[in-house]
């Protein structure tokens, strides 16, 4: 294969990564933006989504698309419910203190990971894609399912954007983000907004995982890379900014796809992590954000 098609393939793979990353990072960003909580267990919600997708799709017989569709609906709901319980039982009792909640979500990370290991096991298991149509390009064939991931993610992002900017729910969330005390004084149930946002954040990660699991595999340690990449995206994009998050996700996803074709993945990770740490040190409002507060 020549260089051009090679690059196109890398770019397509990068876009798939971006699509999944944007959804995952958006969840992290929403939770941080509205609640000022850094959810270290976010990657585990992603992993749970994938593991549940495997469990649901294997439990349902018949055409693979049936099982997949059931997983797409049920897995995020279950993960959202788990997040809701965690929020009520732990985060709320900590009064959303930033440092205490980080320690607590680290605890959640270990608990979820170990429970997944105990009940799901150490194996990596595949989920069959709902359809296996290949699109024939002049140079190579490309999975139609992968392209549909990009479309589905774009659809979900637009829907989230619509909810956030054009509906009353979004207004309530933005008011809470801007100033929770004033919002409370104006009769906004801040407490319930927090619970909803935390569940929504986890559900976004779970949806992303269900979408990706037919082309990767479900594994109990699979949450670590999405967590790190989401952090990177949220920091580069500016904490709590929707547009910044999406732009950064595309940037990171594409460069990750392209870089990993040419460099060793470990070296790529070293460089990326170091660069992001430097962004946080020297430009804490992110590359696209403006100084806030």
């Amino acid at each position: 294969m020549h260089f051009g098609p090679h690059l196109l393939l890398a770019a397509l793979e990068g876009l798939v990564t971006s699509a999944v990353l944007a959804l995952t990072a958006l969840g992290l960003s929403l939770v941080f933006g509205v609640m000022r909580v850094v959810n270290v267990a976010h990657g585990e919600f992603f992993m749970l989504g994938a593991v549940l997708a495997w469990a649901i799709s294997t439990a349902i017989s018949g055409h693979p698309s049936l099982g997949f569709l059931a997983a797409l609906v049920l897995a995020p709901l279950i993960v959202g419910l788990i997040a809701l319980v965690a929020e009520r039982l732990v985060l709320r009792r900590l009064n959303y203190n930033p440092e205490a909640t980080i320690v607590a979500t680290i605890g959640m990370l270990y608990i979820i990971q170990q429970l997944a290991l105990t009940f799901y096991g150490p194996e990596a298991r595949p989920v069959e894609p709902p359809f296996s149509y290949r699109i024939l390009l002049p140079w190579f064939g490309y999975s139609g399912y992968k392209l549909s991931i990009i479309a589905a993610s774009a659809l979900l992002l637009v829907a989230t954007w619509f909810v956030l900017t054009r509906t009353k729910i979004g207004l309530v969330m933005r008011a809470t983000q801007y100033d929770s005390e004033t919002a409370q004084a104006f009769g906004i149930p801040v407490d319930r907004v927090y619970a909803g946002v935390f569940a929504l954040g986890a559900m976004l990660a779970a949806v992303a995982a269900v979408l990706i699991v037919p082309i990767s595999q479900a594994h109990y340690l699979m949450g670590q890379d999405p967590l790190l990449l989401s952090f990177i995206v949220v920091i580069i994009g500016g904490l709590g900014s929707l547009r910044g998050t999406v732009v950064a996700a595309v940037l990171i996803g594409l460069s990750d796809g392209i870089i990993s074709v040419f460099f060793s993945p470990t070296l790529a990770k070293i460089i990326a992590t170091l660069l992001v740490a430097m962004v946080l040190v020297f430009r804490p409002q992110g590359l696209f954000g403006t100084a806030s507060r």
Partner: peptide, 10 residues
């Protein structure tokens, strides 16, 4: 470890 962390901060 996870349970201990959560119980301690709580």
């Amino acid at each position: 470890v996870g349970i201990a962390l959560i119980l301690l901060v709580l």
